[in-house]
Design a protein around this nucleic acid. Structure first.
Ligand SMILES: [Mn+2]
Ligand SMILES: [Mn+2]
Ligand SMILES: [Zn+2]
Ligand SMILES: [Zn+2]
Lengths: 155, 155
DNA sequence: ATCCGTCTTGAGACCTGTTGCAATAACGGC
DNA sequence: GCCGTTATTGCAACAGGTCTCAAGACGGAT
């Protein structure tokens, strides 16, 4: 029994992924990984910085954003953009979905399964374009807000 | 003959649209409108600021961005987001399309007509959600880059 | 245990917008 | 033409992120 090299430990697996690429395992990266393992749903960069500082009070923004970039390249997290353009992060591979966001009431929904396929499928078939579903945010007006707003010529 | 109230003049029509809403017609807004009338394709906010300053050297960023917001509400312009998240503006109603952007080679394509319908249609039918096509940017890998990259587990 | 090359960090400048607020100026009414 | 109301502007601070670069520290080799 070797608890410290437990293959199921996502932190240990991340550490190995870093090292296998010639990258280094630092306290800052460990803190961010710990935060991500304990996170769920959509989390903004600022929130991740705050939480990381609870583990390592020295953590700075540029380090967090850089680490998130690397983790995205490693396939461990993904990000999309909220209404104001702010980045929202997800931990892999919990859920792979797109986002639907109403510009009026600000409600959001997730796009998964068949619905996602309906959107990505035609692009893949006709253009060979592989959509990055996790990054996708489709904005517009939800059914409720659409009836409510007076004939919007745009959209 | 009244050239100054020519109904086909887009600047005059914009002025009337402002006034009809109780908004004011200012030199700054006029400068930005003139820039937009002379623009085509995708233009970033910074580019619009520079061009507006050629007409009215006093124009400041906040005024330009605020005017663009208003013009978007009036349905005269729309914006989407490039790779870095920067805003890119379009003049209405020249073209109403979505955007397809390859994350690897940075090439972009426009999504129009049937292709756009294939994407927006299912959301409208199943959810009553009206997609803001102009704001939509779908990212991923184009057919060329997809074959080239080594088995990316993400996306 | 120490060395060293190279990766990573932290600090601060920078970039694109956004926002609060006091000063300014459209514009409808007189 | 003046006035007063109120929309708009300009400024400066702010916010989320990115970038540069010198200083620091991983970690493989000895
Ligand atoms: Mn993004
Ligand atoms: Mn936007
Ligand atoms: Zn809504
Ligand atoms: Zn490409």
């Amino acid at each position: 029994m070797k608890p410290t090299t437990d293959k199921a430990d996502p932190i240990a697996r991340a550490r190995d992924a870093f090292r296998a690429r010639g990258m280094r395992w630092t306290p800052q990266r460990r803190a961010i990984l710990e935060v991500l393992v304990g996170a769920s749903g959509h989390v903004t960069g600022v929130e991740l910085i705050e939480r990381a500082r609870l583990r390592d009070s020295e953590t700075t923004p540029s380090t967090v954003y850089r680490t998130l970039d690397v983790l995205e390249e490693l396939g461990l997290v993904s990000h999309s953009h909220g209404h104001d353009g702010r980045e929202e992060f997800h931990v892999w591979p919990v859920s792979r979905h797109g986002h639907l966001a109403c510009e009026a009431c600000r409600a959001t929904w997730e796009i998964e399964g068949d619905e996602a396929l309906a959107i990505t499928g035609s692009l893949t078939r006709k253009r060979g374009f592989v959509v990055n579903l996790s990054h996708l945010t489709i904005s517009g007006l939800c059914s409720e807000c659409n009836g409510r707003t007076g004939a919007n010529p745009g959209l």
